[in-house]
Design a protein around this nucleic acid. Structure first.
Length: 412
DNA sequence: ATTGCTGAAGGG
């Protein structure tokens, strides 16, 4: 069951709070139920309020037009069901139109890299983790983010709500309206600024945003939990909720392990000063002097900060990160628990080997830079296809007949 | 720049 409670408005009793970008309610999906079902009642209410009070509810981002007197969940015009990555695929028809060396301007002749093709400014840590599971599937997920078999969807929703419940144990979540990507980044920074002192005083935090350039690509993520072990070491904890009361098998563990290693790589970089405001601005194509939205500025004031532009916030954040002398992450822990009865299944301690992690990162990012072809699952991993949401449309499978036979074989 | 494109993680 999806019990994900709504992050209610600014609670007063918490030890802290996190702001979530409340993109004017644009986190909507066509299908009222199977999609991101955790749009909460309170979010819907605030949407309706906004509509009634005549607020423009135009959601240009995502190419989604909402008729604003019908701003309810069931009335979302589609167009978003393919998500933001829904650039029409398969434009190969017009390819290489005769290299008429004359009129052809200085446009790049070479085909775009996958990163360019999907207009991605950055990769998420979880993109890379999906990539380690199956690169072909990861691409399908980017192209069609809302495609899920119902059973996958239910398990994922349950996991989300358990995570949210845990988050609410350590701080409140207050919705903040963002009007631009600059606003979203500012909010991310405000969250970091709010969490630094908690870490400094030995406290525990959840949902810590991290980002850093790796191999020329911006990688962003959110650390599930940071706290201190009994030995006083800074410890990263990543909760994995499971649909079966079993520990994961190797293939899945590999993905989880890389996930926490990537978080450490990003976090350590941030506290040791490798971040530069300009690099972030360039990668993300942000306007540094753009004035921040009213709600973001208002929230900054509540945090005791007077800021007007994203540059202000970013630089403040980087200064704080480097001068707070936060430790690097000492220990990486995966915690598994069973969705059914919340019982604890076990811990895994992950060893961080920098060379090995960087080697993997280089390999996975090379795909995004167009340096190699896509690589679907190997024969021995063909079992993954049996529970893949995209099995029936998969090019990799179609082009790998041996894989298909292995996959469909009912072994034993 | 056919001028702008995205909360990440969520589980297997």
């Amino acid at each position: 069951m999806s019990g994900g409670g709504a992050p209610q408005g600014a609670g007063s009793g918490g030890e802290g709070c996190t702001c979530v970008a409340d993109e004017e309610g644009c986190r909507l999906e066509e299908d009222g139920g199977s999609g991101f079902s955790d749009i909460s009642d309170s979010e819907l209410l605030s949407l309706q309020d906004a509509a009634e009070s005549g607020d423009t509810c135009s959601a240009k981002k995502e190419g989604l037009e909402i008729i604003h007197d019908n701003c309810g969940k069931s009335d979302v015009s589609t167009g978003a069901e393919q998500g933001h990555h829904s650039h029409h695929m398969g434009l190969n028809s017009a390819e290489n139109p005769v290299p008429s060396d004359s009129a052809q301007r200085k446009r790049k002749q070479k085909s775009p890299t996958p990163l360019e093709k999907y207009s991605m400014k950055h990769l998420a840590v979880t993109d890379i983790c999906n990539q380690i599971w199956c690169e072909q599937q990861m691409v399908y997920k980017i192209e069609q983010p809302t495609v899920h078999r119902p059973e996958s969807r239910a398990i994922i929703n349950e996991g989300s709500s358990i995570h949210l419940a845990r988050e609410l144990e350590v701080h409140d979540v207050v919705p903040v309206t963002t009007q631009s990507r600059e606003d979203s980044w500012a909010l991310k920074c405000l969250n970091i600024l709010a969490m630094i002192p908690v870490l400094q005083s030995g406290g525990r935090i959840r949902e810590f945003p991290v980002f850093r350039e790796l191999d020329g690509i911006m990688v962003v993520g959110v650390i599930d939990e940071l706290g201190y072990s009994s030995k006083g070491e800074l410890e990263l904890r990543e909760l994995k909720t499971r649909a079966t009361p079993t520990l994961p098998r190797l293939a899945q563990k590999k993905s989880h392990e890389l996930q926490v290693c990537l978080y450490k790589l990003l976090f350590d970089g941030m506290v040791s000063g490798v971040l530069q405001a300009d690099a972030v601005m360039q990668h993300e194509n942000l306007r540094p002097e753009q004035e921040l939205g009213a709600d973001v500025k208002e929230h900054a004031i509540k945090c005791g900060l007077t800021v007007t532009t994203l540059r202000d916030v970013l630089e403040l954040t980087f200064l704080n990160l480097t001068f707070s002398e936060l430790p690097r992450i000492d220990s990486l822990k995966l915690e598994y628990c069973y969705q059914g009865d919340s019982s604890f299944l076990g811990f895994d301690t992950v060893t961080f080997k920098e060379e090995s992690v960087m080697e993997q990162v280089t390999f996975y990012l090379s795909y995004w830079k167009g340096q190699r072809d896509i690589q679907g699952v190997d024969i021995e991993d063909a079992w993954k296809c049996r529970m893949c949401d995209f099995a029936d449309i998969c090019e990799w499978r179609r082009n790998t007949p041996r894989l298909y036979r292995t996959m469909t074989k009912r072994f034993k």
